[in-house]
Design a protein around this nucleic acid. Sequence first.
DNA 1: GCCAACGTTGGC
DNA 2: GCCAACGTTGGC
Length: 137
Amino acid sequence: MARWLMKSEPDVFGWDDLVAKGAAGEEWDGVRSAQATGNMKKMALGDEVFFYHSNIGKEIVGIAEVSAEAHPDSTADDPKWQCVDIRAVRPLKRPVTLAECKAEPRLAEMVLVKNSRLSVQPVTDAEWTVVLEMSGE
DNA sequence: GCCAACGTTGGC
DNA sequence: GCCAACGTTGGC
């Protein structure tokens, strides 16, 4: 199973909004980046996803999972833009901030640290474990 | 609010 | 197909 990280600005759609969607989850529409779209196309049902708040908070706040694999984005006029659906699984015991990730040598190669602009990115198993450890789990 | 970084676009 | 210009993202 693969692991990922997806970002959202919490004043637009945050962790609490995803939780409110329940088991049905939310279509992750609106992404118009070839790289981010490419990553979503690789996702499989049940893949785990870190949910990150950009701009406000700048921290990983929870774990979500892929509830539907890539399908055309219902808000796009071009079918090349695809997206997945995700649903909340559980919040992290304690959020892990971007500053903490940058300060952690084992996360030096993490995409979140190296390419802050990519909104849907892969997370290695090793990075996943380190972040969970930092969250106090 | 500023600006650096980076992906994308479009002219050649 | 290259690359300069442009727009956008997101940290600070």
